[in-house]
């Protein structure tokens, strides 16, 4: 069979890759330390309390990583407006019919495993983008509830910006519940996320996994040219509308 020419596309910019791995590290660290805070293991120690501080250190790590997580998250939101087209916020919020159409395609091909078809997206596919939208929401929920709980322990103005959050729920009770339950969203998401990366790499052979390390993805030339043409058409359509608008 014929080999295909692949075009190299620079998809994930360095700040995005950096964000991704810092985020991954933070989520793993926060899940582990957070779970320990919720359910501390029974270390039977003979030591006096004054010589031990492991639970305090664990909490410290949780809070330290949460700051990194927050700033990293804020940076990603910023990059959604200044980054390249694959990082743009429009990848995550369905704004047109094409977005929904592509989501349905992804569901058919990737989840219902429609036979011998492959869906080739250069950046995030529409379904992934839409799911990331909810992931960002979960990030926001964790930041709000987490720093809301933390505010009472801190004198710094930054966490105290979140001091209004417990008031919404009448206290810390429900806040903890939400914060803890949302952790499971991250765990389940991570499992699916990693699997789907492997899946795409496996059935497409386009370097899905390594793209988040080097930033490169590869795409078949004919698909690439089709994309390019569509892109041009859209641009012309947009220009035409603008000119029409100016005339009117």
């Amino acid at each position: 069979m014929a080999t295909q020419n692949l075009r190299r596309v620079f998809v994930w910019q360095l700040p995005i890759r950096f964000y991704h791995w810092v985020n991954a590290l933070c989520i793993v660290a926060l899940c582990v330390t957070g779970y320990i805070i919720a359910r501390p293991p029974a270390f039977q120690q003979g030591t006096e309390a004054s010589f031990a501080y492991w639970f305090g250190i664990n909490r410290f790590l949780h809070f330290a990583f949460s700051y990194i997580f927050l700033f990293n998250f804020l940076f990603r939101l910023y990059w959604g407006f200044v980054g390249n087209r694959y990082a743009n916020w429009k990848n995550f919020i369905p704004t047109n019919r094409k977005f929904f159409h592509e989501m349905w395609e992804v569901i058919k091909i990737d989840i219902l495993l429609q036979k011998d078809k492959e869906h080739l997206a250069v950046g995030h596919n529409a379904l992934a983008g839409f799911i990331y939208f909810f992931v960002f929401l979960a990030f926001a929920v964790q930041c709000l509830t987490g720093f809301g709980l933390y505010a009472a322990m801190s004198d710094w103005w930054l966490p105290n910006l979140f001091a209004w959050v417990p008031g919404l729920f009448g206290g810390d009770f429900d806040l903890r519940q939400i914060h803890h339950a949302t952790m499971w969203f991250f765990i389940v998401f991570s499992i699916i996320h990693v699997y789907l990366v492997f899946y795409h790499d496996y059935v497409e052979g386009r370097g899905e996994t390594s793209s988040i390390i080097g930033g490169w993805k590869f795409i078949e030339e004919d698909v690439f040219i089709k994309e390019l043409e569509e892109e041009k058409k859209e641009e012309e359509e947009f220009k035409r509308k603008v000119i029409e608008g100016q005339k009117a």
Binding site: P40, A42, Q45, T47, A49, F55, G56, N58, R59
Partner: peptide, 11 residues
């Protein structure tokens, strides 16, 4: 509180 920070808990 010191027992909490030291991770010494009643089971």
């Amino acid at each position: 509180r010191p027992f909490y920070d030291a991770g010494l808990f009643v089971e």
